[in-house]
Design a protein around this nucleic acid. Sequence first.
DNA 1: GTCTATACACTGATAGAC
DNA 2: GTCTATCAGTGTATAGAC
Lengths: 188, 188
Amino acid sequence: MTSTREQIIQTTCELLELQGYHATGLNQIVKESGSPKGSLYYHFPGGKEELAIEAIRYVGTIVLRRIKENLVQPDSPAEAIRSFIRNIAFNVELSNYRAGGPITTIAMETAASSDTLREECQRIYSEWQAAFADKMVVGGIPSQKARQLAMLIIAAIEGGVILCRTQRSREPLEVVADEIGRLIAITG
Amino acid sequence: MTSTREQIIQTTCELLELQGYHATGLNQIVKESGSPKGSLYYHFPGGKEELAIEAIRYVGTIVLRRIKENLVQPDSPAEAIRSFIRNIAFNVELSNYRAGGPITTIAMETAASSDTLREECQRIYSEWQAAFADKMVVGGIPSQKARQLAMLIIAAIEGGVILCRTQRSREPLEVVADEIGRLIAITG
DNA sequence: GTCTATACACTGATAGAC
DNA sequence: GTCTATCAGTGTATAGAC
């Protein structure tokens, strides 16, 4: 069921998450995906940039779904979000600090060089933000405040992933989870 | 007074901050620094990696000094740190979203590929963290709690810079400043 | 300390057969 | 849809003269 096209996208997602945009070559993508090289430009005529856009859109949607799934539980926003972030910490450690922050590096690398990639990152972040904000609104937090807290949540998670991968420890994201949870609880 | 060596380091700092590690070539560094190409490997025998380490160490120290300068004021930790983060937001906007997060991209790009660069990033982050924690301890917050809050502060700033550059808006860091300030005030 | 020239790998991308 | 071959450009790094 996984077509060649999808196989290329999935491999690209993993490599972008691990190495970033500029360190990931098309040859490596072709090689590790086991896909025929000749078909890359058939499926992605726009070359590397188009492929990267498809890849982050793909992983962005998966993450969005994961956020929503985790937040539908009846827990309070504070507890649900705290639990979700601690879950990220667990998974980052589990991957031996190779995964986490699937679009973080691309966002920084391309913010000043590619408007199309930058805007796609922006779109994904705003979707994630809306998902967190929705949960808090349902929990009784005013929508404007919820929007701001959701922005902090995204920022703290992205930064927390950076620290975890740099320190090779899950502690930063656990601290982020607890402190953010505390802030939401005080607000709500 | 700016020697060739220092000129190369400064140019490298700017390019790394703007483009990241893998997008920045040694040829570009030589060209934009106006330095003689032949001298690059004389000053940095270890090549690109050694140069990058020197560069982030250099900028890391500058930022550390800036943090300390901003936090010696008599304001409460909450207000001093809030003000400092809003100052970052202002400067990111002022640079047309080209500056900010001088080691963020490098930390993510090299976390899985270069232990020496990763450890240098780790060292810098911990120095920044200690500076924030010190201010809070002086303000009466228990040292363990101060250490955790400082970790959140670093994470939220790093993530906030990512969002600002991606959205081309200073709002994310301003929100981070206000919410983090609120959390510290509640704690202290 | 600096210069020029260069080696060699690899990049993204394209052409044309199949 | 896929394959092979290949292009022009760029990457890091080195050698040897000055």
